[in-house]
Simulated assay, not measured.
Amino acid sequence: MYLVHARLRAPDHTSLPPDAAQLFLGCAREGEGLEHVSAHGDATGGPVVGFYLTAPSLARAEQAAADVCRRALLAHPSLAAVDVVSFGAALVPEYWDAVLGSDGRDMQLQDPSTANLFHPF
């Protein structure tokens, strides 16, 4: 599952409507893989909508999120003045902390003095 954030800009720094997540979710089409939507109207830097999608690739997930988001902005009058600033996959620090471990590595150091670059020190 991918988490794709849509960063939005609202006029006069207005917040998203309380039912924004449902408005976006309702604009998904069959086959786009949208599982869940979260909306954060008061996020630092402007509103953010999180799209949780199942997709065969990150590129497909980002495209599906963009399509759903644009459809919602066109379909709902309460979102008509909102513009998209960016779309992108969200990094989840807790996941990478667990994968990389305490030293920040996902593999051993390599010994460049040998012919075998995968030989550990």
Rank of each mutant, 00 (worst) to 15 (best):
A72F: 13
L53C: 08
A72T: 12
L25D: 03
F24G: 10
L58A: 15
G26L: 06
D19C: 09
E32S: 14
L23T: 12
F51H: 04
E62H: 13
E62K: 15
L58W: 09
G31T: 01
A61F: 14
R60K: 14
A39H: 08
V68L: 05
R60A: 15
H40T: 08
H40D: 08
L53K: 00
F51D: 02
P47M: 00
P17Y: 06
C69G: 14
G45P: 09
G31E: 11
P18E: 07
A20E: 02
L73W: 04
E35H: 12
V37T: 04
R29P: 12
G33E: 06
T44I: 09
G31F: 01
H40R: 05
A55W: 04
G33C: 10
D19I: 01
G31L: 00
Q22H: 10
H40P: 03
A72I: 15
E35Y: 02
F24S: 06
A72E: 12
A39S: 10
P18M: 01
S38A: 11
E62W: 00
D67H: 08
A72D: 14
G41H: 02
P47E: 05
V48W: 06
A21D: 07
H40Q: 09
D42K: 12
E35N: 09
A66C: 15
A59P: 11
A43Y: 03
L23S: 07
V68C: 06
F51L: 02
A59D: 14
P17H: 10
V49R: 14
D67A: 15
A20R: 03
G31Y: 02
L34K: 01
A43W: 01
Q22G: 07
R71H: 11
H36N: 06
P47A: 04
